[in-house]
Computed example of a mutant assay.
Amino acid sequence: MFEYVENYWVEFLTIASVHILAVASPGPDFAVVLKHSIRYGRRLALITSVGVGVGILVHVAYSLLGIGLLIKANPDLFKLISYVAAAYLFYIGFGAIRSKAPSNQTTTDSLATSVVISDKKAFMIGFLTNGLNPKATLFFLSIFAVVVSADTPNLVKLGYGLYLALATSLWFCFLSIILSSDKVRAFIGAKGYWFDRVMGAVLILLAISLIIP
């Protein structure tokens, strides 16, 4: 293992540096975590964040299996993935944009209790949002084609993937803690349903951007 670290640390540092820029860029993952942080509170936002991180393992899996080469060589297959991702983002965006005003709730706690989702659903939303993200697909295709050598053992590539999953989870957990703070949620207040609608519109626009060049 120490030999692997010594031989491939340049690859790792390159991947880690590129990943920092990629994960910090606003996208579907950020929109969903932001929405859940405000709407459902810290716990469910953290679960969603873990789902986003685990979703990266989908991209790691097809990259290690060589399916990434097939996707790269077949534009129609990539387009199909983009359409599926767009449909999913549109679905959760449309659900958010239909959020209704709470009847008699004016406290910040109402944002987390007016609508309840299960831990499993929170995790799966994060997982699918990242797992179906074509931008993440492009990222991994680029990383494994340009940065990672063809001679790099699959065990090392798997280590890269596990790191990316962990780093992504930690980043979005950090955002969840900040965005679900009492001050942020108090600022939103009883008008949280308007925030929900805005984030729904953002998700729908992201969906449209995936199918319209």
Rank of each mutant, 00 (worst) to 15 (best):
residue 88 Y to D: 07
residue 88 Y to R: 04
residue 89 L to Q: 01
residue 90 F to N: 09
residue 92 I to W: 05
residue 92 I to E: 04
residue 92 I to R: 00
residue 93 G to K: 07
residue 94 F to Q: 08
residue 94 F to M: 13
residue 94 F to R: 03
residue 95 G to L: 12
residue 95 G to V: 14
residue 95 G to R: 13
residue 96 A to T: 09
residue 97 I to M: 15
residue 100 K to E: 15
residue 100 K to M: 15
residue 100 K to F: 13
residue 102 P to I: 08
residue 103 S to C: 13
residue 103 S to T: 15
residue 105 Q to F: 11
residue 106 T to L: 14
residue 107 T to M: 13
residue 107 T to E: 12
residue 108 T to S: 11
residue 108 T to I: 11
residue 110 S to T: 13
residue 110 S to N: 11
residue 110 S to H: 12
residue 111 L to D: 04
residue 112 A to L: 12
residue 113 T to M: 10
residue 114 S to D: 15
residue 114 S to I: 08
residue 115 V to T: 15
residue 116 V to Q: 14
residue 117 I to V: 15
residue 117 I to A: 03
residue 118 S to G: 15
residue 118 S to Q: 06
residue 120 K to Y: 15
residue 120 K to P: 08
residue 121 K to N: 14
residue 122 A to E: 02
residue 124 M to V: 07
residue 124 M to Y: 08
residue 124 M to L: 15
residue 127 F to C: 02
residue 127 F to S: 02
residue 127 F to P: 01
residue 128 L to G: 02
residue 130 N to Q: 04
residue 133 N to M: 08
residue 133 N to K: 07
residue 134 P to H: 10
residue 134 P to G: 12
residue 134 P to R: 09
residue 135 K to I: 14
residue 137 T to V: 13
residue 137 T to H: 07
residue 139 F to H: 00
residue 141 L to P: 08
residue 141 L to V: 10
residue 142 S to M: 09
residue 142 S to V: 04
residue 143 I to K: 00
residue 143 I to D: 03
residue 143 I to W: 00
residue 144 F to P: 00
residue 145 A to L: 07
residue 145 A to Y: 00
residue 146 V to Q: 10
residue 147 V to M: 10
residue 148 V to L: 09
residue 148 V to R: 01
residue 148 V to F: 07
residue 149 S to D: 13
residue 150 A to S: 10
residue 150 A to C: 05
residue 150 A to N: 12
residue 152 T to C: 11
residue 153 P to C: 15
residue 154 N to E: 10
residue 157 K to H: 05
residue 157 K to D: 03
residue 158 L to I: 07
residue 158 L to M: 08
residue 158 L to E: 01
residue 159 G to C: 09
residue 159 G to Y: 07
residue 160 Y to C: 06
residue 160 Y to M: 09
residue 160 Y to S: 05
residue 161 G to A: 05
residue 162 L to N: 07
residue 162 L to I: 10
residue 163 Y to W: 12
residue 163 Y to D: 06
residue 163 Y to Q: 05
residue 164 L to I: 04
residue 165 A to D: 01
residue 165 A to G: 00
residue 167 A to K: 01
residue 167 A to Y: 00
residue 167 A to V: 07
residue 168 T to S: 04
residue 169 S to P: 05
residue 169 S to K: 04
residue 170 L to Q: 08
residue 170 L to A: 09
residue 176 S to M: 02
residue 178 I to L: 10
residue 179 L to H: 02
residue 179 L to Y: 06
residue 180 S to Y: 05
residue 180 S to W: 04
residue 183 K to W: 15
residue 183 K to E: 15
residue 183 K to I: 14
residue 183 K to A: 14
residue 184 V to F: 05
residue 184 V to S: 06
residue 185 R to C: 03
residue 186 A to S: 12
residue 186 A to R: 12
residue 186 A to E: 14
residue 187 F to T: 10
residue 188 I to N: 02
residue 188 I to Q: 01
residue 189 G to C: 09
residue 193 Y to F: 14
residue 193 Y to N: 02
residue 193 Y to W: 10
residue 197 R to N: 02
residue 198 V to Q: 00
residue 198 V to L: 03
residue 199 M to Q: 02
residue 200 G to T: 07
residue 203 L to I: 07
residue 203 L to W: 04
residue 203 L to V: 09
residue 204 I to F: 04
residue 204 I to G: 04
residue 205 L to T: 13
residue 207 A to P: 02
residue 208 I to L: 11
residue 209 S to H: 01
